[in-house]
Nucleic acid binder design. Structure first.
Length: 330
DNA sequence: AACCGTTCCAACCGCACGCCC
DNA sequence: AGGGCGTGCGGTTGGAACGGT
């Protein structure tokens, strides 16, 4: 059976966009917002399907898009996030300011994937290729840890995406124009959202376990930021009041704290103990700070996991950094 | 100059999901 | 409950650009 096509394709243009078409699309959205994408082409005088218009806008014409070479920091972030999330490009894109999922996906496929492969790292598992063959129980457990961390991050991102959607909805009530072209920003500002990885990759200190804070004001989108607290589970804090916020509180808490989300292989894994803190460790970090975490497992086995994961992640970044310096590919 | 192989990325395609009726 | 619609997402592809011979 299958669903009907997104639009009547007869007589519709495909392929590269002309400057005239770009101008029509830009002018229309600037004046009216995009509204329904299906209805947009006719209103804007374009012989395109709505899907094509949406893609052209989101991947190319949108004013808040940075084009050109990816910075080293952006590359590092992509690699880290890909190790956590896999090919979830849209989720990754929420952490890379002004880059689209399509651009990140292309960059991964044409540059980063090849570079990791050249360095002997499996771009799918982010492990040295030999390790995949020599997997032991301990290594399997490490992989499981990574998987649980990914689940945690996945739940968080889903919650975050929900917030953005709600925020967009809310903004659309406040401001009829969907996009603010003059300021070059959309209603959603995922780049300012919490980023646990920044804390790790920028050498955050005094890290014990993460507490994320969500800040909402009446007219601005909600902002979530990562910070450090002494709780064993991530918590969310709201600033601002409204029914929408209340709704968000419920959904977020469900996504972040449900222990069922983090069970696997008939074994309850405390991700905060075995995974997340290791992600937050850094080269110069004071282990005593971490070890003092009241809910942390201080067993020797646990320390090995922290150390292994830390070394693994840092080795990826070091390899990338060194290849950046020496590789003719770059 | 012509040809050929490779790289890169904009754009397409099809599926998934949420919402609404 | 289920079907239609709108949109988002990830995989794939077409073709322009580039480099080597």
């Amino acid at each position: 059976m299958g669903r009907s096509p997104c639009c009547d394709k007869v007589g519709l243009k495909k392929g590269p966009w002309t400057p005239e078409e770009d101008q029509k699309l830009l002018a229309y959205i600037e004046e009216h917002g995009h509204g329904s994408w299906r209805a947009l082409p006719a209103k804007a005088g374009l012989q395109r399907c709505g899907k094509s218009c949406r893609l052209r806008w989101t991947n190319y014409l949108r004013p808040d898009i940075k084009r050109g070479k990816f910075s080293l920091h952006e590359e590092q972030t992509i690699i880290q996030l890909h190790a956590l999330l896999g090919n979830r490009w849209s989720a990754i894109a929420t952490h890379i300011p002004k880059r689209t999922d399509n651009e990140i996906k292309n960059y991964w496929n044409t540059h980063l994937k090849k570079r990791l492969a050249k360095m002997g790292i499996d771009p799918v598992t982010h492990k040295p290729k030999n390790d995949v063959l020599l997997s032991t129980d301990g290594q399997s457990k490490n992989a499981a840890n990574l998987s649980h961390m990914a689940q945690w991050e996945s739940a968080r991102l889903e919650a975050e995406a929900r917030l953005v959607r709600i925020s967009k909805l809310k903004s659309s009530f406040n401001t009829p124009t969907t996009y603010n072209l003059s300021s070059g920003s959309t209603s959603a500002q995922p780049n300012r959202s919490l980023d646990i990885l920044k804390a790790w990759s920028s050498g955050g200190y005094d890290l014990e376990s993460p507490t994320s804070t969500l800040t909402c004001s009446e007219n601005a989108p909600p902002i979530m930021t990562s910070s450090v607290g002494d709780n064993s589970l991530p918590t969310i804090e709201f600033v601002g009041t409204s029914e929408l916020h209340h709704d968000m509180t419920l959904s977020i808490e469900a996504a972040w704290t449900s222990p069922e989300s983090f069970r696997g292989n008939n074994e309850h894994v405390n991700i905060m103990d075995e995974g997340f803190n290791s992600l937050l460790l850094n080269d110069s970090g004071d282990r005593s700070l971490f070890d003092s975490g009241k809910d942390c497992d201080n067993s020797a086995a646990g320390s090995e996991y922290y150390e292994d994961n830390k070394n693994y992640w840092n080795s990826i970044l070091n390899l990338v950094n060194s290849s950046q310096d020496h590789s003719p590919m770059l």
